[in-house]
Design a protein around this nucleic acid. Structure first.
Length: 195
DNA sequence: AGCACGATCTGA
DNA sequence: CAGATCGTGCTA
């Protein structure tokens, strides 16, 4: 019997919903990066929700600028930005167009192309589950993917993979936002799962 | 035109 | 715990 592989790319309506809900449900999804003939993939294990103009930790908080413009566009697109003079971070745009929200991908667990991803990082066995810039290095995600349509099935997309039950999900405050208002600094909008 | 700082990572 | 390293947005 032939094994049937169902390609289940997440459609735009997955992203076009409440950001916190999307951030939780992204856990266990597979992030796929296509580099010519090479396919790298990894399961998402850590996310953070950034909830629009009302969220003082969100880049869109002070309105639309050239950098954050993608967040104001349609859901299901990648918002990739450069920070600390050397790192790229990957976000997925959520909610309806015009509501500038996104989910930051903070950690993944390698699935396919593990050796290639390790090679892209300096050390063998380098962890990708603890730091949002590392997965971008490993999966060759940079500013050229800013604004990329994640539903077209090329270059970069997401697929259903593992079902993560609510019991395996931990929520904590978000990382690296000391400047945000307390209400937003302490909000439990970071989601993690364990292997 | 200048400047302060960041959704970070590494190595000491 | 400091250094790397530069785009971005705010002030003027």
């Amino acid at each position: 019997m032939e094994k049937i592989t169902i390609m289940s790319i997440l459609p735009v309506n997955f992203y076009e919903r409440n950001t916190i809900r999307v951030a939780r449900e992204l856990l266990g999804k597979k992030l796929v990066r296509r580099l010519g003939g090479l396919e790298l993939s990894a399961m998402i294990v850590e996310t953070e929700a950034y909830c629009g103009t009302g969220d003082s930790a969100c880049h869109a908080h002070r309105g639309k600028t050239p950098r954050n413009a993608v967040m104001f566009g349609p859901p299901g697109h990648a918002y990739v930005y450069f920070t600390y003079g050397m790192h790229y971070l990957l976000n997925l745009v959520t909610e309806k167009e015009g509501n500038p929200c996104a989910v930051l991908i903070r950690g993944v667990s390698p699935v396919d192309g593990i050796a290639e991803m390790e090679a892209r990082r300096k050390k063998r066995g380098a962890e990708l589950t603890n730091g949002p810039a590392k997965l971008c290095q490993a999966m060759c995600i940079d500013k050229s993917l800013n604004g990329w349509d994640l539903t077209c099935g090329r270059e970069l997309w997401l697929e259903n993979y593992k079902n993560i039950t609510a019991k395996r999900i931990t929520a904590t405050p978000r990382i690296g936002i000391p400047y945000a208002r307390e209400e937003h600094r302490t909000a439990l909008w970071r989601f993690l799962t364990v292997t």
